[in-house]
Every structure is written in structure tokens, then in C-alpha cells.
Amino acid sequence: MVTEQVERINRNIEGAVNQGRYLILKTHRMTELVEKHIMFSLESILRKTEHERLIHTLYTILKELVINGCKANQKRIFFDEQSLDLNDESQYHKGIELYKKAFSEKMALEYGKKARDRGLYCMIDFEFDKEGIRIEVVNNTAIIPAEETIMRDKLKKAMGYNDLAEFYMEQAMSGDTEGAGLGLALIIILLKGEGIDPSYFRILIQGEQTIARLEIPFSERFRSKRDHDARRVGEQA
């Protein structure tokens, strides 16, 4: 039954890619099936645009972003259940510690169902043609100021690294192990490793939505959305 479901969804993905330049996937939690659909989507799009060499790098990045988006939604539910205020600094740190201690794969599945019931989602929006690809990972909970500050700091620091081992070593020595921030910093390093300008990666807050946007030009005719963004996290001077 699972195999039939995967094949059916993959046929729909392949059909959408072959017929147009847009594709949207939506989920409430990261599962093995979701991972397979992300990989198949990238394979289909990058084959069509003749940039298959980017499959594994983009898959790694997308997986990180979707996990972060799903966790962000699930953390909001956890804080609500614990009657903790995200915007109160002491309560925020208490909640994060409680969440880290309680987190497990079983919990992720349970809270994924709760996210679905509350209308919280993580959506992957692909837009692509021969000029380039734009991928947006959207979750419908906004980043609070404390989290935004952490992300801005991580992204700024990551711009100074070109090597994953060097980055890991310095983070370990400083005792800095903030999960989501570390993952975002590694994304920047992966992009630099592919020769992709990391300024094409943005995290934006629009109302109650947090949007992680990655753009990759395939030609000089590609037009980026970044110049139209009113608010950016991690913007470089």
C-alpha cells in the first residue's frame, strides 16, 4: 500500500514538472515518505533543467529547511501546551530546554498530527525554468525576535567559512550547538562549495509565515526576488 502511494504521488509530481514550471509539496512532519518525494521532485526538476549535479546538495538543504519548518510549528504547539510565553525571554529558554529533553521521533510524529489538526504546515514551493530555480520552504508560524537574532548571527558567521570541518571545529570549541542555527550556517557553506552566491539564500518573515527562499541562477537572464524583499534575515552589506 505504501509503495503504491509513493508511486501515485511521484506520478503526479512528474506530471506537474513535465507540464509546467511550478510544483508545490505540503506536509506537517518529516517522514521517510516525505524525504522520498522531495528527492524525486528534485530529480525530476533538475533533469528537466539539465542541472542534475545539484541534486544531492539541494536535497540536503531542502531536508534541513523542511525539518526546521516542521519543528518550528511543533515547538509552538509544545509551548502552548506548557502554557509558556514565547516572547518572554526566561520562559522561552525554559521552554526550549524542556522541548529538547522531550523531543523524540515518536514525539515528532505525534506533534506532526497535532500541527495538521491546528492547520499548521510546511510547504515547499518550486518555481523553475531554463534560467534558474527558486525554492521556498514556508511554515505558517512567524519567527520570534529572539530566534531571528540567532539566525542572523549564524548566517553572518557562516559567510566567513568555506570548509565544513573548520566550521564544526570552531563551533565545538565555543560550545555553540544551537541546532537550527547550525543547520542554516551549514547551508551557506554547502552553497559556497557549489560556487553558488549564498546571498541568494534568504529567510523572510511575512505576517505569520516564515519563508526560507533559495534561488539558483542557471543563466544571466535569471531575475531574483531578493531586491523586492522589504525584510530580510542575514542580509549582507
Results as ranks from 00 to 15, higher is better:
Glu97Ala: 08
Ile61Leu: 01
Tyr99Asp: 01
Gln91Thr: 09
Ile135Ser: 06
Lys114Phe: 07
Asn139Met: 11
Cys122Asp: 07
Arg118His: 14
Ile77Gln: 04
Gly112His: 02
Tyr121Lys: 03
Asn139Lys: 11
His93Ile: 10
Lys113Val: 15
Tyr92Phe: 11
Asn73Glu: 03
Gly95Ser: 09
Met123Leu: 11
Leu58Thr: 00
Thr141Pro: 11
Glu127His: 14
Ile135Gly: 06
Thr149Val: 15
Ser83Ala: 13
Lys94Cys: 10
Leu58Gly: 03
Val138Arg: 06
Glu64Met: 05
Phe78Arg: 03
Leu120Pro: 02
Asn140Met: 15
Ser104Tyr: 01
Glu148Phe: 13
Phe103Tyr: 06
Met123Phe: 08
Gln74His: 05
Gly95Leu: 08
Arg134Leu: 09
Glu131Ala: 10
Cys122Trp: 06
Glu147Leu: 15
Glu131Leu: 10
Gln74Trp: 02
Ala115Phe: 08
Lys113Gly: 14
Tyr111Val: 03
Gly112Tyr: 02
Leu120Phe: 11
Pro145Asn: 14
Gly119Ile: 08
Cys122His: 05
Gly95Pro: 08
Val66Met: 06
Thr57Asn: 00
Val138His: 07
Asn68Trp: 01
Glu136Ser: 11
His93Leu: 12
Asp125Gly: 10
Leu62Trp: 00
Val137Tyr: 12
Glu97Cys: 05
Thr60Phe: 08
Leu62Pro: 01
Tyr99His: 00
Phe103Leu: 02
Tyr59Asn: 07
Ile143Glu: 14
Asp80Pro: 09
Phe79Met: 09
Asp85Leu: 14
Tyr92Pro: 04
Gly119Met: 08
Asn140Gly: 13
Ala72Met: 01
Ala115Cys: 12
Asp88Val: 12
Ala115Gln: 09
Tyr121Pro: 01
Glu147Trp: 14
Lys114Cys: 09
Ala108Pro: 00
Pro145Gly: 12
Thr57Pro: 00
Asp80Glu: 15
Leu86Thr: 06
Arg118Thr: 10
Val66Tyr: 01
Glu97Trp: 00
Lys113Arg: 15
Glu131Thr: 10
Ile133Phe: 05
Lys75Trp: 00
Tyr59Ile: 04
Arg118Val: 10
Phe128Lys: 02
Gly95Ala: 09
His56Pro: 07
Asn140Cys: 14
Tyr121Met: 04
Ile144Phe: 15
Val138Gly: 00
Leu84Cys: 09
Asp125Met: 12
Asn73Met: 02
Ile150Met: 15
Gly112Ile: 06
Gly95Tyr: 07
Asn73Thr: 03
Asn140Tyr: 12
Lys71Cys: 03
Leu98Lys: 11
Lys94Arg: 13
Glu110Cys: 07
Ala102Pro: 00
Lys94Gln: 14
Lys114Gln: 09
Asn73Pro: 04
Asp85Thr: 13
Thr57Ser: 01
Asp129Met: 11
Ala115Lys: 04
Leu109Ile: 14
Glu97Leu: 08
Leu86Arg: 07
Leu86Asp: 07
